[in-house]
Design a protein around this nucleic acid. Structure first.
Length: 501
RNA sequence: GGCCCCGUCGUCUAGCGGCCCAGGACGCCGCCCUCUCACGGCGGUAGCGAGGGUUCGAAUCCCUUCGGGGCUACCA
């Protein structure tokens, strides 16, 4: 077969999920590549909802899908809540269209009515010494009117099958190059069920054709269904429903820990967990884009804008890609650190507010503290939710001292001595600033007590922040203020004293 | 079983016949910086699945083989 004639015109891609359950990261990666390809080429990105499975689809899942794409910044030009010239964009609202196209296909002879039951097909395969797994045998292609009438008289409802061409089915895959299926390898498949309900392999290409989709980028799991769609497109083009065959690009599968396709059951496949933990949308987009694509030989950090600028579908790798949480976190952390202070504060406030630490919006004082600590916090976080544990001590009256930290740093007479010296140094400190605090503490603890900095500041840190790990001490003390600092030092001293017995 | 896809460090990848006794990133290890933790800097670890060709020359092209994966519904 010669290469099919492409759909003419500028690029039009689409994303067409079913609203069933959780939003899968592999699905999002597919959406991302379609979006990036459309944006890069100045084309159009169409969003269509394939909600034809009433049993599994849900309105909640539908809303969640829209919300997820919006959060990631994957904006669509045509689709739900936006509309467009090729709507409606929910399959559940398009039923009338399919019956009409099916009738035309039947009338033109591209499709035919088939009455064979699965049992009959298997029996014929077996009788011919063949493996029943080969499937339907194209037996009903040339039924006479009398034969059809006889079947109907038995009460049988025929399915509608597409007549597959007797030639190799070939296409040049955007990511894999030429792919070929031998003539006869794919049986005539079902377009419409006996009960009149059209099937996915039929409605999906019909909608793509009607919506003028030029480039179909989808998961590799759908590659085996492409020869059927090629045949369908040829038929649709013949009857004037399609204006050509789209280009196909089969994206590598996203795998989980092993080598298997990342399943919907795998908790790590759920987009929500990344969002809830405080991944930045641009961080996740950056990482997801790396699953099968690379921007340059020596670079892997980029913004969505830079992705669009550089994206080239023909440079997408054909290998399966494993989702690596560590790398995703590293990429996100880099984006987090690069955030301007104001923006970081804006994004972290919902997490802090959610934990009851600051108001929504924060008070002027909370905002001042947040902005001051932001640069120090940013380089210690990989996701936004970590701000809660890291910064809580700045927004409460009294800290709760972590038992393990107390055990480690407040366990003896040494700690008492250090804390006493610290109180003495800070109580009347004239200039309550980071620099003056640092100088006062070094003088009192390092020089005065003759301790190594490491040992000197441990108990102070735990007293002030409640933890052994915190933002830099002097800055923290300054932001905390004299009153709370001294109160915490006193409280910690009591703990240390009782431990010292 | 059949059809199809894939095969470079542990992971994601660069590489499209000489620039590669293979580059980057994450991870891991070490050192430096240092009030903790990070950040940052420096260094290290580790790979072309195997076998045949083609070629002056192959990670790159061809074949075979092995391995991994996907699909095999009147689901989507």
């Amino acid at each position: 077969m010669t290469a099919p004639a492409p759909v003419p015109g500028p690029v039009r891609t689409r994303f067409c999920p079913s609203p069933t359950g959780l939003v899968h990261v592999g699905l999002i990666r597919t959406a991302l590549f379609n979006w990036a390809h459309a944006r890069h080429t100045g084309g159009t990105f169409v969003f269509r909802i394939e909600d034809t499975d009433a049993a599994r689809d849900s309105e909640e899942s539908y809303r969640h899908l829209l919300d997820s794409l919006r959060w990631l910044g994957l904006d669509w030009d045509e689709g739900p809540e936006i509309g467009g010239p090729n709507g409606p964009y929910r399959q559940s609202e398009r039923h009338g269209i399919y019956a009409d196209v099916a009738a035309k296909l039947l009338a033109a002879g591209h499709a035919y009515e088939s009455f064979s039951t699965n049992e009959e097909v298997d029996a014929r395969r077996l009788a011919a010494g063949q493996d029943p797994k080969l499937g339907y045998d194209n037996h009903d292609r040339h039924l006479t009117d009398a034969e059809k009438a006889a079947f109907r008289a038995e009460g049988r409802q025929p399915v509608l099958r597409l007549r597959m061409p007797d030639e190799d089915l070939v296409w040049t895959d955007l990511v894999r190059g030429e792919v070929r299926f031998a003539a006869g390898a794919v049986p005539d498949f079902v377009l419409v069920r006996g009960n009149g309900v059209p099937l996915y392999p039929f409605v999906n290409p019909v909608d793509d054709a009607l919506m003028g989709i030029t480039d179909v980028l989808r998961g590799e799991d759908l590659l085996p269904s492409t020869p059927r769609q090629l045949a369908l497109y040829a038929a649709l083009t013949d009857i004037g429903v399609a204006s050509g065959t789209p280009r196909f690009g089969h994206l590598p599968l996203v795998t989980g820990e092993g080598t298997r396709k990342l399943s919907k059951r795998d908790p790590t496949s759920n987009l929500d967990i990344y969002r809830d933990r405080g991944f930045l949308p641009e961080g996740l987009v950056n990482y997801l884009a790396l699953l099968g694509w690379s921007i340059a030989e020596d670079r892997d950090i980029f913004s969505p804008g830079e992705l669009v600028e550089a994206f080239d579908i023909t440079r997408v790798s054909a290998n399966p890609a494993r989702f690596d949480l560590k790398k995703a976190e590293a990429i996100n952390a880099t984006h987090l650190r690069a955030l301007p202070v104001g923006e970081f504060v804006e994004r972290v406030v919902p997490y802090l507010a959610g934990a009851g630490l600051v108001g929504q919006p924060p008070t002027a004082e909370q905002d001042r503290v947040l902005r001051a600590i932001a640069p120090l916090a940013q380089e210690r976080m990989i996701v936004l939710s970590e701000a809660v544990g890291l910064l809580a001590f700045l927004f409460v009256d009294d800290v709760e001292i972590d038992p393990a930290a107390a055990e480690k740093q407040l366990a003896g007479a040494d700690a008492v001595e250090v804390l006493d010296a610290t109180v003495a140094a800070l109580t009347d400190l004239a200039d309550w600033s980071t620099g003056a605090i640092e100088e006062a503490l070094k003088t009192a603890l390092v020089e005065g007590l003759g301790r190594k900095p490491r040992q000197a500041f441990g108990p102070v840190r735990v007293a002030v922040s409640g933890r052994t790990v915190s933002p830099p001490l002097y800055e923290s003390i300054e932001l905390l203020g004299r009153e709370r600092t001294l109160a915490r030092l006193a409280a910690a001293r009591a703990v240390a004293a009782s431990a010292a017995g």
